[in-house]
Design a protein around this nucleic acid. Structure first.
Lengths: 206, 206
DNA sequence: GCAAATTAATGATTTATTCAAG
DNA sequence: CTTGAATAAATCATTAATTTGC
C-alpha cells in the first residue's frame, strides 16, 4: 500500500533527473503554470504534487548557492569579517544566461526555461501590452495535518473586478488543445517579465 | 474599472482595524480556511484578496518582532557583539497564551484563534486525537496578471488516499458552500492520470 | 547478511530581508 | 517613510544511506 504514512515526498530517480535537467536548463522559480506542467509530467514517473516541485526548486537553488558560498569562503579563507551573509545573496547561481540546448523539454513542454527573475525583477515601469500575461509570482505555505494528511491548495481569488462570475474551474487558459501534456503559451509571448524569450542575457548585472 | 493600475492592495481603515484586532486576538499564521473567512469578511469593507490577508499577517508579525528587537538592543546598548540575529529569533511575540475575549470574531466565523505553533511544534510524540482537524498547512500560489488582474489560487491536493480518478478538470468539491468564495480542487497534480491535461492543453510546439 | 543505531540528504516550514508602490 | 509583496536564508523533521554489532 501506498503507505498510509509517507509523510514526505520521495522523488523517484527519474523525477530527480528531470528536475535537475530543468534546473540546469535555467528554471529557478517556476511560476504556477510551469509548476503545473512539470507536475503533470513528472507524475508519469511517480506520485508528486505541485508543492513538491515548488519546494524542490527552492531547496535546490538554495543549496546550490550554499555550496558555492562555502567554496568561496574556503577559497579566500578570511574568517575575520565575513559580512552579513546577505552580501553573498546573489552569489550562488546567476541564472544561466541562456539555456543551452540541454533543455530538450522545450520539445515536450511549451515553456522556455525562463531565466528566473532573480535578479531582474519586473520593474513595473513599462506598460505591458495587455493581457496575455498569465502569472508571475507565487507564494506558498503548506500545512500539515495530524497524521499523514496533507493537502495543497490554491485558492482562486475571486477576481477583483469580476466578482466571482464563475471561476472556470480550470482557470487555466488552454488556448489550444494539445496532446499529451503540453502547455499553453504560458508566459507568453515575450513579455517583459520572463525575459526568457527575448533578452536572455543582458542583465547579468550584479 | 477600478483603476486599471492599482498594483498593490491598500487596506481600508476598517480592514486594518479588524486585522489588528485579530492579531491581538492571537492569530499569527492563519490557515487557508481562516484566510478565506477573513477575506470574505473583510471584503465587505473593500477590495481584498486572500493573499493580502496572508501577507498582512506575515508582515505584521515580522515587524512587530522587529520593533521589539530594536527596543531590546537599544535597551542593552551593547553594540559590540550583537549576536547573529538568530539568537533573537523568538523574541518578538510569544503568541498570546490564549486569546482574550477580544476575539469576537469567533462569533461570525467558525475558527478559533489558533495559537500559532510558533514555538510549540508537534513533536510527534503526542498522539493527537484523530481527525477533526481540518487542514493545517496550505500552500498557495499567487499569480498576477498584467495590469490589474490578479488571481490567487489554492489548489486542493487530491488527497493521497482517495485516488479519485475522474476529476474532469472541473471537479469542484465545495465542501463548504461558503458564500462569497468557494474553493475547489483544481488540477489534480498528484494523480497519475492527469485528466484535464489531456484534452485541454495544446502543443504550442511552434 | 540483517537490523538497530548513526549520519547524511533533503523535503517541508518558518523567519528574515529585500524590493518597490504610494 | 510606511508597508504590501516577494524572495532567500535558516531551521526543522523525516527519509535514505551508512555504519556497526551480532
Amino acid at each position: 500500500m501506498p503507505s498510509s504514512s509517507s509523510s514526505r515526498w520521495s522523488p523517484t530517480p527519474e523525477q530527480v533527473r528531470i528536475l535537475e535537467e530543468m534546473y540546469r536548463g535555467g528554471i529557478r522559480n517556476p511560476n504556477p503554470s510551469q509548476i503545473q506542467q512539470i507536475t503533470a509530467h513528472l507524475s508519469l514517473y511517480g506520485k508528486i504534487e505541485g508543492k513538491n516541485v515548488f519546494y524542490w526548486f527552492q531547496n535546490h537553488k538554495a543549496r546550490d548557492r550554499q555550496k558555492l558560498r562555502k567554496k568561496l569562503i574556503i577559497r579566500h579563507q578570511q574568517p575575520q569579517n565575513h559580512p552579513h551573509h546577505h552580501l553573498l545573496h546573489y552569489l550562488g547561481s546567476p541564472p544561466p544566461p541562456v539555456l543551452p540546448q540541454l533543455f530538450h523539454y522545450n520539445n515536450s513542454f511549451g515553456f522556455l526555461p525562463q531565466i528566473s527573475n532573480d535578479t531582474a525583477k519586473w520593474r513595473g515601469d513599462d506598460h505591458l501590452p495587455d493581457q496575455t500575461r498569465e502569472m508571475d509570482k507565487y507564494y506558498a505555505t503548506v500545512m500539515r495535518t495530524n497524521g499523514s494528511d496533507r493537502r495543497m491548495m490554491m485558492m482562486l481569488d475571486v477576481s477583483p473586478t469580476s466578482t466571482t462570475t464563475t471561476l472556470p474551474c480550470c482557470n487555466i487558459v488552454h488556448n489550444k488543445p494539445l496532446k499529451t501534456l503540453e502547455l499553453f503559451p504560458i508566459t507568453a509571448t515575450g513579455l517583459k517579465d520572463d525575459k526568457c524569450t527575448t533578452s536572455l542575457l543582458d542583465s547579468t548585472s550584479n
